[in-house]
Amino acid sequence: MNMTCDQAQAMIQERIDGQMVDGTERNAMELHLQSCDACRRFQADMLEIHEGLGSLPELEFPDDALEEVWDRTVRSPSRGASGHWRWMAAAAAVLMVALAGSWFGLFDTEPEYSPAEVARATVEARAALGLAGQALQRSQDVAMEKVLGGQVTPALSKITIGLPAVQSGNKRRTGA
């Protein structure tokens, strides 16, 4: 079996990567190497590059960067909840406050609020609505990421209306 330089060089690389090379092919490669200076040089260079890459210095992750990671993970006060659930909890809390406010408002027949109190309540209500909006948006984003990431099968793909029904073998036999 005659081997070209391209074939021999591909095999040299596979051997460097520890891949099993078939005995017949290995013999053909050795034969080729005996008669080809260029491939012998290629093999020597590849081995040296392989060793050089393997001994590149390790890059230390800075200590202060690691501390920041710990602060934002294992040392974080909200570490028990994942990001998704934190946003859901925040949304639920805002909703509860809003509902409580409107509930008490029903029984407040004669409200006596100063203009300043009304103004402050308006600002707070706007802030609460803003937070609720952000939380909702965030939840939608997370849900969309999960759908796009294939973690969740969208309900749409389960809809089979209009598609031909798949009949089982038994049914076909019964029908005939």
Partner: peptide
Amino acid sequence: ADVTPNPEKQSAAGELG
């Protein structure tokens, strides 16, 4: 080279590295 804390490793990498 700056972020490599181990001078031994750094020199071992050498010119080829």
